[in-house]
Design a protein around this nucleic acid. Structure first.
Length: 350
DNA sequence: CATACGTGGAC
DNA sequence: TGTCCAAGTAT
């Protein structure tokens, strides 16, 4: 389907498109250059629930270290997890590697160019499949992310709360998707949502869709989309154990592949709950570090008590493994574990 | 369909 | 300090 709205938005995009590292600019495309599907895929996965400023340095690091999907497929798991550390939602990194290996081994290093083919790959859901198909292969796929939901809810004054309204908003979005320049159109709607049709205070005065926007006419743009109230976050407690060997090595463990912080390096510790049981990973003289690490996850607040100890060079831990001082980089840790390290290091550094 | 899954910035 | 929010996916 096609309507004049998409033309107006594309006209705006031609002038106001942001210059982002994973984009192929208008000049390059005019010269016949297409975006690299690998870079489009990598950027889209990184951008899932994550802001552009947070993604930029990670995208640069990944593309420098692993310039092609074949390079990434050949990487060590631990290296990729370490490179993703701090970006969050670590299942993305595990699926990124799985996906790269499937593309390298089963697709000859070439990404599928259809929504269905892309959708079958690990870590690629409805949004990402449509985004890659549209942006990398110029397929007329309908891209629906949080921006598109917000823009459609306002353009058509949809007052049904999310997530109930999701289907209706998707159908509305599909009705506007043009056959021409679908990749630019997809990025244009998302740019519009990110820069003009923002969640709290939309800049309706300079919006290319200000005339047709029903919510603006009704004076309710800033109140849309409506959302069901969120559940309160409970507080969980835990204990983290930071041990340092006399030779400077640190006792860390690789977390199980599934669940919270799956596949990441972390400090051994108790379960996280209402009344955690002590679970020292090593027989040692554990001392309270005197400060707790506080961290908020998507669905709970965490307060981690910190115990520190020094261990002899022949110490044999019951859990985890000692990592030599020279091999340990705090930047390899997920943020909550880095907070623990920052609080514990003063007690264990001479 | 509901829930689990991170983090940092804006207000 | 607390809440909301961001280019979602897997189960």
């Amino acid at each position: 389907m096609r309507d004049s709205l998409s033309d107006e938005l594309l006209g705006w995009y031609d002038v106001h498109a942001r210059d982002l590292p994973w984009r192929t600019g208008p000049a390059a495309r005019a010269a016949g250059e297409r975006p690299d599907p690998y870079r489009v895929w990598l950027s889209e996965v990184m951008l899932q629930q994550t802001t552009v400023p947070a993604v930029k340095s990670y995208f640069a690091a990944f593309t420098t270290r692993w310039p092609t999907v074949a390079d990434l497929a050949a990487a060590e798991d631990g290296d990729v997890m370490a490179a993703w550390a701090g970006l969050g939602y670590y299942a993305r990194a595990r699926n990124l590697l799985k996906c790269a290996r499937v593309v390298a081994a089963e697709h000859g290093g070439t990404f599928p160019d259809s929504v269905e083919g892309l959708r079958a790959l690990p870590g690629i859901g409805p949004y990402t499949a449509a985004a890659i198909a549209a942006i990398a292969f110029d397929r007329p796929a309908t891209v629906v992310d949080g921006n598109v939901e917000r823009v459609m809810a306002r353009l058509h004054a949809v007052e049904t709360p999310l997530p109930t309204a999701k289907g209706e908003l998707t159908a509305l979005a599909a009705g506007h998707t043009p056959e021409e320049r679908p990749g630019d159109y997809a990025q244009a709607v998302m740019d519009l949502g990110a820069t003009i049709c923002t969640p709290r205070s939309p800049a309706c005065g300079i919006c290319p869709w200000r005339e047709p926007c029903v919510a603006r006419a009704d004076g309710i743009a800033a109140t849309l989309p409506r959302k069901l109230p969120k559940a309160a976050k409970p507080v969980r407690l835990g204990i983290a154990y930071v041990a340092r060997r006399e030779d400077g090595a640190w006792l860390l463990e690789r977390r199980p592949d599934s669940g919270l912080l799956g596949g990441m390096l972390g400090w051994p510790g108790s379960d996280w709950g209402e009344a955690p049981e002590p679970a020292p990973p090593l027989d040692a003289d554990w001392q309270d570090a005197g400060a707790e690490a506080r961290h908020t996850f998507t669905h709970f607040h965490l307060r981690l008590a910190i115990r520190v100890a020094r261990a002899p060079v022949d110490a044999v831990p019951e859990r985890g493994m000692f990592i030599a001082q020279g091999d340990f980089r705090p930047s390899d840790l997920p943020t909550v574990m880095r907070k623990v390290f920052d609080l514990a290091r003063a007690e264990l550094t001479d």
